[in-house]
Amino acid sequence: MNWNLYQKELKRNRKNLMIWSAIVIAFTLMITSIFPYMKGMGDDITALMDKMPPELGKALGMDANTWSSILGFYSTYYGIYIIVLVSIFTTSTGATIISKEEKDQTSEFLMSKPISRLDIFKTKMLALFTLSMIMYIIQTTVALVSISIFRGDPVDWDVFAIMHVNGLILMLFFTSLGVIISMFVTPKKNFMGIVVGITFGSYFINAIGQAADAVNWISYISPFHYMSFIVNESEYSVNYLSAIVLLAIGAGVLYISYLKYKKKDIVG
């Protein structure tokens, strides 16, 4: 771990972090603050849900109860948008944190300094983790405060905690994918397309699998299947085995990325 490089990475990504945090904060506030109005329409919406094809409800993780509690309401948006938005930020940061130096050809400067490739990799990963956690903690705090304000009825905070643990694991998993993509995809252009594709894509694969029983299996390839946000299920809990497996895959992906990075030729 190299403190000099670590500080530099945080500073370099500061602006991006602020912009994305602002988006995610605004979104969290918007969802939670509209809940009291939605709740007022509860009966109408329940009637509407009854008329909707049940597959659509399942795909979106909604049922009649969704509209009656703030956590039910928040969870549908948390699962679709917030985690995907947070992951797009962390994954794209992961994809660029090393590759930007190669694209801008500054890796020649960095690697001619007295620092080993392992130190560079570790330091950059730690900076990436720091940035991701700042983002995650900001969002969770804002959600916590905002839900407390707009909840109306008492809230089961355990459910909130489970949701956010699941979100954290998904975020870390996607972030590690960002790193490995940047190691194997050339030319080092804009990774945003791939990143959005993977995060939103895995969400939709899961949604399709849940909606249509015929292609139920498809949801098994999506990490969203294992880290569920359907909070109204009777036994909603963290799936620890899946969590460990996803984190282990993430760690393995980072290790492969390091092996690739260690042997990389820096051609000017």
Binding site: Q105, E108, G268
Partner: peptide
């Protein structure tokens, strides 16, 4: 070592 590259690419 002090290294002077032939083409200089630094952080813009």
């Amino acid at each position: 070592i002090g290294y002077l590259p032939s083409e200089v690419h630094y952080y813009d």
